[in-house]
Amino acid sequence: MSIKFKAQAKRNPQDITLPEKYYAAAIADGEVDLDILAEQIAYECTVTESDCHAVLLSLERNIIHSLKQGRIVKLGRLGNFQVGLSSSGVDTIEAVNASLITKARILFRPGKRLRQLLTGLTYKKAS
C-alpha cells in the first residue's frame, strides 16, 4: 500500500511576490466512519456491531466533554487529545486576558505505534 500524492502550488506566506513553488500533498483515498469502524471491530471480536457503534459514540461524547473542561484526554497507546489556543501577544503578563485569544484548536499527539506508522510508508504519485 502507498500514500497517494499530487503536486500542489503554494506561495511563500512571508513574501507573496515570489513565484509559486510546487510541493507534494497527500491525497485522501476514501474515508472510514464510525459505522465502518464498528463493523470492522465487531468482525475482529465477540462484541456486536451495534455495541461497538454505541461505545464509539460514547467515546466521542466523553472526549468532547473532557476537552470542554480543559482536560487532556489520554487514550493509551492511541494518543492524547488536548485543546490548544492561539492569541495576540502583549508586552506584560498582567495584560494577558481572554479577549486576546484568536483561535482554539484540538491538538492530537499520536502514540508510539501511530508515529512509527510514518516511518514505513511508501508513496505513489497520483495519475
Score class of each variant (00 low, 15 high):
Ile27Tyr: 01
Ala28His: 01
Ala54Pro: 11
Ile101Thr: 11
Ala104Val: 00
Arg109Gln: 11
Leu75Met: 06
Ser58Pro: 06
Gly84His: 04
Ser50Met: 11
His53Met: 03
Ser88Phe: 01
Gly30Cys: 10
Gln82Trp: 00
Ser87Ile: 05
Leu57Ser: 14
Ser50Leu: 12
Ile41Val: 15
Asn62Gln: 14
Glu20Asn: 13
Lys68Tyr: 03
His53Phe: 12
Gly70Arg: 00
Phe108Asp: 08
Ala54Lys: 09
Gly111Leu: 04
Lys21Leu: 14
Asn97Asp: 15
Asp35Ser: 10
Asp35Thr: 04
Ile93Met: 10
Pro110Ile: 01
Ser86Arg: 12
Arg77Ser: 14
Gln82Leu: 00
Pro19Tyr: 13
Gly111Asp: 04
Lys112Tyr: 04
Ser58Val: 04
Ala26Trp: 02
Pro110Ser: 02
Val55Ala: 13
Lys74Gly: 01
Arg61Leu: 04
Leu67Glu: 08
Leu56Trp: 03
Lys21Phe: 08
Ala25Asn: 14
Thr48Trp: 03
Ile41Gln: 07
Ala42Val: 03
Gln82Gly: 03
Ile27Thr: 14
Ser87Thr: 10
Gly111Asn: 03
Arg77His: 10
Glu60Lys: 12
Tyr43Arg: 15
Ile72Lys: 13
Ile36Val: 15
Thr46Met: 11
Asp35Leu: 01
Ser50Phe: 06
Gly89Arg: 10
Arg61Ser: 13
Asp91Cys: 02
Ala28Pro: 01
Ser88Met: 10
Gly70Ile: 00
Arg105Asn: 14
Leu59Thr: 12
Gln82Glu: 14
Lys68Ala: 10
Ala98Glu: 09
Arg61Phe: 03
Ala28Thr: 03
Arg77Phe: 06
Ser87His: 09
Gly84Trp: 00
Ser66Pro: 01
Ala38Phe: 01
Asp91Pro: 00
Ser58Tyr: 02
Ile27His: 02
Leu75Cys: 02
Ile106Pro: 13
Leu37Ala: 09
Ile72Arg: 12
Glu60Ile: 11
Thr92Val: 07
Gln69Ile: 05
Lys21Asn: 14
Ala54Glu: 13
Lys74Asp: 15
Ile106Tyr: 08
Leu78Phe: 15
Glu60Tyr: 08
Thr46Tyr: 05
Asp33Glu: 08
Val73Leu: 03
Leu67Ala: 11
Thr102Ile: 02
Ala42Gln: 06
Ser88Leu: 12
Glu31Ile: 09
Leu85Asn: 08
Val55Asn: 11
Ala26Pro: 03
Leu37Thr: 11
Gly70Met: 00
Ala42Cys: 02
Leu37Asn: 10
Ile64Glu: 10
Ser58Ala: 14
Ala24Arg: 02
Phe108Asn: 06
Leu85His: 08
Gly79Cys: 04
Val73Thr: 08
Leu34Tyr: 11
Leu67Tyr: 04
Asn62Arg: 12
Val55Ser: 10
Tyr23Asn: 05
Asn62Gly: 05
Tyr22Pro: 06
Leu34His: 09
Asp51Trp: 04
Asp29Ser: 15
Ala28Lys: 02
Thr102His: 07
Ser88Asn: 15
Ser66Thr: 01
Ser86Glu: 10
Leu100Lys: 08
